[in-house]
C-alpha cells in the first residue's frame, strides 16, 4: 500500500494505518526534529505531536506533495512551536542569516576537510547554524528535497532557500575549519589554505 492510500485509511479512522506511516517516516521525522531542536527529548515530543496531528488532519491531506514532505512540514511546525516555547527566536535567526558578515574561509580544499572532519564536529557545527539554515541544509542533504519542495515546506520563495543553503554551507565550512584548528589567521591554516 502506498503512502497516499495509507493516509486515506488514516482519514477513515484506521489507527493501524497510522502505525504504518509511523514505521515508515518517524525516524526521518525524528532526525529532522532533532536537527532543529538539538535535544532528543524535544525531538521525540515533536514527532509524537506531529503524528497525532497527522492522525487528526489526514482527511485534509490534499495530495499536493509527497506524504514524507507533508509529515516533515508538520514536524517542522511542531518543532518551531517548541523552539518558540523555549524562547528561541527563529525570526532573528533568519535576519542573522541574511545579514551575516561571515568571512568566507577561503579555498579550503573540500577533500582535506572531508578527510579530517569527524561526525562530532559536523554535528556540533550543524547545530551552531541558525535554525532556518540548519533546517534547509538538513532537508537538502538528508531528505534529498529540491529547492521548491523545501520552499513549499518552509513557506518561503525558492531563492530564500537557495540563500539559506549557501550561507549554511559557508558557515559549516568555516566552523569545521576552525574546529580543525585551521583558522584563517593562523600560520598553520595559511599553509593548508
Amino acid at each position: 500500500m502506498d503512502d497516499h492510500a495509507i493516509v486515506a485509511a488514516c482519514a477513515k479512522g484506521d489507527s493501524h494505518a497510522l502505525r504504518s506511516l509511523h514505521e515508515r517516516h518517524a525516524r526521518a521525522a525524528y532526525t529532522f526534529a532533532l536537527r532543529l531542536l538539538g535535544n532528543p527529548a524535544d525531538a521525540d515530543d515533536a514527532v509524537a505531536e506531529a503524528f497525532y496531528e497527522v492522525w487528526r488532519s489526514a482527511s485534509k491531506f490534499a495530495n499536493r506533495s509527497s506524504v514524507r514532505t507533508w509529515i516533515l512540514g508538520i514536524v517542522r511546525h511542531k518543532a518551531l512551536d517548541l523552539l518558540r516555547a523555549r524562547g528561541a527566536r527563529a525570526e532573528e535567526a533568519i535576519e542573522d542569516a541574511l545579514t551575516d558578515t561571515l568571512v568566507d574561509p577561503g579555498p579550503t580544499p573540500f577533500e582535506w576537510l572531508a578527510e579530517h572532519q569527524t561526525w562530532e564536529m559536523v554535528d556540533r557545527c550543524m547545530q551552531a547554524l541558525p535554525v532556518p539554515q540548519r533546517e534547509s541544509l538538513h532537508l537538502f542533504l538528508l531528505e534529498g528535497l529540491s529547492l521548491q519542495q523545501i520552499a513549499q515546506l518552509q513557506g518561503v520563495p525558492d531563492n530564500t532557500v537557495a540563500t539559506r543553503i549557501h550561507h549554511a554551507k559557508r558557515k559549516l565550512k568555516l566552523c569545521l575549519t576552525e574546529a580543525l584548528g585551521l583558522k584563517k589567521a593562523s600560520p598553520k591554516a595559511d599553509s593548508v589554505l
Binding site: Y30, T31, L34, R35, A114, Q117, T118, W119, E120, V122, D123, M126, H138, L141, L142, L172
Partner: peptide, 10 residues
C-alpha cells in the same frame, strides 16, 4: 561526507 556523518551522528 557531511551527510554520512550526520546520519552517524543521529
Amino acid at each position: 561526507r557531511i551527510r554520512q556523518q550526520l546520519e552517524v551522528a543521529a
